[in-house]
Amino acid sequence: MAFENPSREKIKEILEKAGNIAIVGLSDKPDRTSHMIAEALQSNGYRIIPVNPVVSGEILGEKVYPSLKDIPEPIDIVDVFRRSEYTPEIAKEAVEIGANVLWLQQGIINEEAADTAVKGGLTVIMDRCIKVEDSLLIGKRHG
Rank of each mutant, 00 (worst) to 15 (best):
K119M: 06
M1C: 14
K12C: 03
L136S: 14
P53T: 03
L60K: 07
L26D: 00
L136F: 13
G19K: 13
A38I: 02
V24W: 00
V51E: 03
Q105N: 00
E112I: 06
Q42P: 07
L68T: 00
K12P: 01
V24L: 02
S56N: 15
L68H: 01
A117H: 09
E16P: 12
I37N: 07
I11N: 01
L68I: 08
R8I: 14
V118N: 09
I125F: 09
E133F: 02
E112H: 01
V55M: 12
V118F: 09
G25I: 04
M126E: 07
K63C: 06
R141C: 08
D115R: 14
E112Y: 04
V80P: 01
E96Y: 01
R141G: 07
W103Y: 02
I23K: 00
E62K: 11
S135A: 15
G120C: 11
G120L: 04
N110M: 01
I77M: 09
G121E: 03
G98W: 05
P74K: 12
L41M: 05
L15M: 06
L137R: 03
I11K: 04
A113Q: 01
K92L: 11
E39H: 12
L136R: 15
R32Y: 04
E39M: 15
I125Y: 00
H142S: 14
K140L: 15
A114T: 05
D70Q: 13
D70S: 12
L136Y: 14
K131S: 14
D70E: 13
A117K: 06
P72D: 09
I130S: 00
W103Q: 07
D70C: 13
I49E: 02
E112G: 09
L26G: 02
R8M: 15
S67Q: 00
G98C: 10
T123F: 04
K29H: 14
V24E: 03
I49W: 03
H35T: 09
I14C: 04
I48V: 10
E96R: 02
N20L: 00
G45L: 00
M126D: 05
S67W: 10
E62Q: 10
E16D: 12
R32N: 10
I11L: 01
I23E: 06
K63W: 12
Y46A: 10
G98R: 11
L104V: 04
I48Q: 06
S43M: 15
D127T: 09
I77F: 10
A22M: 07
K140V: 13
E73D: 12
A22Q: 07
Q106C: 14
Q42V: 12
V54P: 11
E73W: 12
K29S: 14
E13Q: 07
P72T: 07
L26P: 05
D79V: 01
V55G: 05
L68P: 03
K12Y: 04
I49Q: 08
V101E: 11
T116Q: 13
V78F: 04
R83V: 13
P72F: 00
Y86M: 15
A114S: 03
P74H: 11
V80T: 05
K17L: 12
I71R: 02
I23R: 02
I77E: 11
K140N: 14
W103H: 01
Y65V: 05
K92F: 08
R47T: 13
K92Y: 03
K63Y: 10
R82G: 04
E89N: 13
